[in-house]
C-alpha cells in the first residue's frame, strides 16, 4: 500500500495549485479546500476533467456579515476515488460576483439562481440569472442574509390571529381534561 487515495489527491492538488489557502481532511474520505475566488473556476474545471470528480452535489452559501464576506461552498464527489470534496471561497459581500459553472454542469443553473434569489450573489455567465425562482414578487433584501429579520418581516406583512376571547390556554385545558375524555 502506498498512499491512500485521499492523501494522493491532497498532494496532487497542492502541486497543481500553488496558491490554495488551506487544504485539510474533514473526516473520513472528505477534503476541505479553501480557495481564492479567482481560482475557483479553473480548479473545478481541473477536478472535473482530470481528477474524475464528475458529480456536483450542491452549491451553497454562508453569510459572514462580521467579516463582510459571503462564503460559497461547492461540494463535488468522485465515485472512482470515493472522495467528497468541499471547495470554499470567500467573496466580497458588497459586490458578490462569481463565475458561473453552468457550462460544466447544467444543473448548476438551479443552484445559482436560487443563491441569487436568497443571498443576492451574482453568477456571471448564467443566462437565467435574475429569474424568479421561489420568491415571487419579493421586494425586500434577500431573505437568507443574516441581517434580514424574518420575524419582523412576518409581523409587518402577515396578520396573526387575535388571541382567544376567553384567554384560555388550550394546551393546559386539554392536558387537564385528557384523562376524563379518554375514559369516555
Amino acid at each position: 500500500m502506498g498512499f491512500s487515495k485521499l492523501t494522493e489527491t491532497k498532494v496532487l492538488l497542492k502541486q497543481y495549485f500553488k496558491d490554495i489557502i488551506s487544504i485539510e481532511e474533514g473526516g473520513e474520505q472528505r477534503l476541505i479546500i479553501d480557495l481564492q475566488s479567482k481560482d475557483i473556476t479553473s480548479m473545478i474545471n481541473h477536478l472535473k476533467d482530470f481528477m474524475d470528480f464528475k458529480h456536483l452535489s450542491m452549491i451553497s452559501c454562508v453569510d459572514w456579515p462580521e467579516e463582510n464576506k459571503f462564503e460559497i461552498v461547492y461540494i463535488l464527489t468522485s465515485y472512482s476515488k470515493n472522495i467528497v470534496l468541499m471547495l470554499k471561497t470567500k467573496i466580497d459581500r458588497k459586490n458578490p460576483k462569481l463565475q458561473s459553472i453552468m457550462s460544466l454542469w447544467p444543473q448548476a443553473v438551479t443552484y445559482e439562481i436560487e443563491l441569487n434569489e436568497m443571498f443576492g450573489v451574482f453568477f456571471e455567465g448564467n443566462d437565467r440569472m435574475g429569474e424568479e425562482f421561489i420568491l415571487e414578487d419579493w421586494d425586500d433584501i434577500p431573505p437568507m442574509r443574516r441581517d434580514f429579520d424574518s420575524l419582523e418581516y412576518a409581523n409587518k406583512n402577515f396578520k396573526f390571529r387575535d388571541e382567544r376571547k376567553d384567554k384560555k390556554i388550550i394546551r393546559e385545558f386539554i392536558s387537564e381534561h385528557y384523562d376524563e375524555w379518554r375514559k369516555k
Partner: peptide, 19 residues
C-alpha cells in the same frame, strides 16, 4: 393554516388562511 403553526416567523408562508 390557522395561525402560522411552527412557521410563525417565516417570511414566506401566510399565517391565516381565511384572510
Amino acid at each position: 393554516t390557522i395561525n402560522g403553526g411552527m412557521y410563525y416567523d417565516s417570511y414566506n408562508t401566510i399565517k391565516q388562511l381565511d384572510l
